[in-house]
């Protein structure tokens, strides 16, 4: 079965990104399921900040997601509007807003909400983490 994961909760003020990670991990380790894309919206977009540095004895949920994405060629989409208003920029947005730095951590990528609509309408299940 093909899944879309839609994550809304902040990586700091909620466990949405953590629960979604465990779920994604379990899905990808089973042979019957695949994840078409993971879409981060609202405060969950903060997970894509390259500069995030939790203390070393704590879990870096951003690093975990990136490793999972790399291992399974997983698409990590971050809502561009939600990201930009929270100061998560890629190089293109940096230029557009005439800034001199950017902080989007690959493989997280900025995408419009249209990508979410496409994911939700083309996969069998959408699982939401708030």
């Amino acid at each position: 079965m093909q899944y879309t994961l839609f994550i809304q909760g902040s990586p700091h003020a909620s466990k949405a990104c953590h629960s979604a990670y465990k779920f994604a991990h379990a899905l990808l380790n089973s042979e019957q399921h695949s994840i078409e894309g993971v879409f981060f919206y609202e405060d969950s977009v903060l997970i894509a900040n390259e500069l995030m540095q939790p203390p070393r004895d704590e879990t870096n949920i951003s690093t975990l997601w990136k490793a999972l994405a790399e291992k399974h060629s997983l698409n990590l989409y971050v809502c561009i509007a939600a990201a930009v208003r929270r100061g998560i920029m890629n190089e293109t947005e940096m230029s557009r807003y005439e800034l001199n730095q950017y902080n989007l951590s690959p493989p997280f990528q900025l995408e419009g909400l249209g990508t979410l609509v496409h994911l939700m309408s083309s996969t069998d299940r959408t699982i939401i983490f708030r």
Partner: peptide, 19 residues
Amino acid sequence: SLSAKEGLDLALVMATFEQ
């Protein structure tokens, strides 16, 4: 919070994509 605003934004995008 921004939640209601971002929810409404999503509704408009979905409608634009004829969902």
